[in-house]
């Protein structure tokens, strides 16, 4: 089995998720090689060959440019599987590549068993076991599902069949200003999820955060609804945090939220639904209506 591992160059280096792809390749006993669009002198801690397309020529992500590069490389190296991380880059590019190759694409793999892959569905309440119906396959791996493997510097091989695409134009980045709070430095975070029901109830959660001398955080729907500004959001598209204590109030525990907080030292979930997936990571799961329970807890703590 030969695996092509696709790295992502972000914020001046190869994203850590690449090493999880390496871990995955090792786990299934595949020979692997890598690819990334990055500067030619990029540092990659990987014992193998990595083809690099020069980012100064390829410019910021354009799906067609990247797709064509990878297609060329596949033609040359003939790998059996192409592996991405299930990220905004991976889920954008992997299906296009699979469609162009007319092969299977399997998304968000969390485990593997021979040629069979486990993927979550229904907000991680269920799992499916699937396998490709084609010789080759394009895979995306859930962040954190496979242990990263690092070694010495990789052997870099430049790759240059860069064709530009003028149908799609990158116009720059927009970065959420971290005005309010820097959650990454907080020792205690108490987060509010959609379960708070309405904006005014955020105050109930904020009071608990205050009582614990911690910071207030939030899941995405709370931010999308405009109840708190984006700097409070925890998760893949918000901040990644690892406080000593994380309390999730009315948060179901979708993977994108978990990814941002599961490294916390101690996790408490307060939720009405006993089956909520947040139970997977919670050290203590309080089955309760937060509107009723949280004020009681707060008043005991402030006494």
């Amino acid at each position: 089995m030969k695996a092509l591992l696709i790295g992502e160059y972000k914020n001046g280096h190869i994203d850590e998720s690449f090493y999880e792809l390496v871990g995955f390749a090792n786990k299934i006993g595949a020979d692997s090689f890598g690819f990334a669009v990055a500067p030619l002198d990029v540092n990659i801690e990987y014992a193998g060959k990595v083809y690099i397309a020069d980012i100064s020529k390829a410019k910021e992500y354009n799906p067609k440019v990247h797709k064509n590069l990878i297609l060329k490389l596949i033609e040359q190296e003939n790998p059996d599987i192409v592996v991405f991380s299930h990220s905004s880059y991976g889920w954008d590019l992997a299906p296009r590549l699979a469609a162009a190759l007319k092969v299977a694409q399997i998304s968000e793999i969390i485990d593997v068993d021979n040629d069979e892959y486990i993927v979550p569905f229904c907000n991680a309440k269920l799992r499916r076991k699937v396998k490709p119906n084609t010789q080759k396959a394009v895979l995306t791996l859930q962040a954190g599902a496979f242990s990263p493997v690092k070694s010495n510097a990789a052997q870099i091989e430049p790759l240059d069949y860069i064709e530009q695409d003028d149908n799609l134009e990158f116009q720059g980045f927009e970065i959420t200003e971290k005005t309010g709070v820097d959650l990454t430095k907080a020792e205690v975070i108490v987060s509010a999820g959609r379960g708070v029901g309405k904006k005014e109830n955020i105050e109930i959660v904020r009071s608990l955060a205050k009582a614990l001398k911690g910071e207030l955080g939030a899941s995405r729907p709370v931010v999308d609804a405009g109840w708190l500004d984006p700097s409070y959001q925890v998760g893949t598209t918000g901040q990644t945090v690892a406080p000593k204590l994380y309390i999730a109030c009315g948060i179901s525990g979708a993977i994108q939220h978990l990814a941002g907080m599961k490294k916390s030292n101690f996790i408490v979930a307060i939720n009405k639904d006993k089956d909520a997936p947040i139970a997977e990571v919670a050290d203590v799961f309080v089955v309760a209506d937060l509107l009723e329970f949280v004020p009681v807890l707060t008043s005991k703590l402030t006494k």
Binding site: Q105, L126, K129, K131, T134, V284
Partner: peptide
């Protein structure tokens, strides 16, 4: 189909967490 569905199942609950229930 290009992907074959082999089976669906409910994952085993990872135990370990303490569950608290009852009067607030």
């Amino acid at each position: 189909p290009r992907v074959i569905n082999l089976k669906a199942y409910i994952p085993e609950k990872k135990k370990g967490g303490i569950i608290l229930e009852g009067k607030s």
